[in-house]
Design a protein around this nucleic acid. Structure first.
Lengths: 254, 254
DNA sequence: CGGAGGTTTGAAAAGAGTCAAAGGTCGTGG
DNA sequence: CCACGACCTTTGACTCTTTTCAAACCTCCG
């Protein structure tokens, strides 16, 4: 069935739809499947999921994967790149509510209302697998391991959101920045990258926005942490993170 | 099967387990079923859910329904009363991450790790239906409407959390308090209560905690809004809410 | 190589936190 | 039924963090 969609890849903006049959990168062969929805599925279950995920979308840096108010038709799994999700206040102020890396799911907040409830914007040229939700639900009913995995991802998203609430509600600026860096480091580690050295995909303004701070405050706090030897900053490159030291700054008052 | 558990209600602290057979308040007869997980289920599906929800728990004001770290065995649905969920920083500061009223579900964040990730505390003497999660999952696989409802509740929780993030990250104190009151009013309305007049179940400290403010700040902001004619405050009783005016204060910069 | 966008730093202002004190409310036990 | 204590609320005065406004610098892309 998926094989019938063997058309040439279409290259058109803003978000290109790609038939997956061409690319031989079904879930069953995807090298991030252990980070992603397929985690824990056996070979048979994987094959069923392959039939759900028949297309991918390329999204250029700064372009939306979807926008608030769009009809909710599918969940997305980040394959390559990073995204942010943002919400707007009535008067147009923006709050970044999530930062998604490879293996993370996008669109979970749209299930309830059948409309997307935030904007999902690519932070670099990125690629996401499209999982039409009706089909996914159907397969989840048949394949208990997939149902479990979906529940787990929904629940994990709630847990993450609550961690961010904790940061926004109770931590001061320096603690928020430290917690942000520790969190990024751990997610890089989970993906097999260096934990104490990476490139930020967000601007100071975006980091500040995510953390409920102004960009100048973020810049000052990076400088302060650097002055105190907890990291080196060079624009968007951070190096030599002292993760233990940062963890101490993130929540444990000195 | 549930009928076999026809024992006398046990009255013991801190949280009393009640067999539901005694109380004739299965989901199928529960008067809040339209606000709760059963929403949209037909008679047959409801009967299957009745077999999942065989017990309830009474929780006294200030007592926990569960604590962070407890094994995750069940989801809970608030039947009577209100709860708060709280998270702690490493150094013991508390952040309230949720405020649950009748029909709301508790425990969703525990599915991923099979441990509860927050404390759920009763704000008044309350009662929650116990929904053992394995059974619930099984029935959800068989009853597609229940699966949908569960997904919807999980998704709605994510949406709610993101609204709170928006408030914590981008709104100033006065806006947060206004948004909080509007949100409470709407939830009261949905439950058939007066929207512009109700009793707060939280102390100033708890409201402040929820909103990322100190209790003194909340008290001052209530006084200010009252002085400006947007509501009347008398301890925990708020009256004559000017919902339109409050909505204006909550996000639309004057 | 020009310019837009991003970053850093300083100085002043505003918002919220902290500390303190007094008054109010509620439930319990005498 | 009253009194006591525990807890909650309000308000003031002062402090501190973060924001706001401003200016200069950097750097990366076309």
């Amino acid at each position: 069935m998926a094989e019938s969609a063997r058309t040439a890849p279409v290259e058109q903006s803003p978000a290109t739809v790609i038939s997956i049959g061409d690319l031989r990168t079904r879930c069953s062969r995807c090298d991030i499947r252990e980070l992603c929805l397929p985690v824990g599925l056996d070979a048979n279950a994987l094959r069923q999921l392959d039939d759900v995920v028949t297309t991918r979308r390329r999204v250029k840096r700064g372009e939306p994967l979807y926008r608030s108010g769009d009809a909710f038709l599918a969940l997305y799994a980040v394959r390559v790149g990073t995204f942010k999700t943002t919400l707007l206040t009535a008067d147009g102020r923006e709050q970044i509510t999530g930062y998604q890396m490879s293996g993370d799911l996008l669109g979970l907040d749209g299930i309830a209302s059948r409309r997307h409830r935030c904007d999902a914007i690519a932070l670099e040229d990125s690629e996401a697998c499209v999982m039409p939700f009706e089909r996914l639900s159907d397969v989840a009913r048949a394949v208990s391991a997939l149902q479990q995995s979906l529940h787990r991802f929904l629940s994990r998203e709630i847990g993450r959101d609550q961690q961010l609430m904790l940061a926004l509600g109770r931590l001061r600026g320096e603690e928020r920045v430290a917690a942000f860096l520790v969190n990024l480091a751990e997610r890089h580690r989970a993906r097999g990258f260096a934990a104490n050295e990476f490139v930020l995909r967000m601007t100071r303004a975006e980091i500040g926005n995510y953390l409920g701070l102004e960009l100048e405050t973020v810049s000052r706090l990076f400088s302060r942490l650097a002055r105190e030897g907890l990291l080196q900053v060079d624009g968007r490159v951070v190096r030599s993170l002292d993760l233990e030291g940062l963890r101490k700054r993130a929540g444990e008052r000195c």
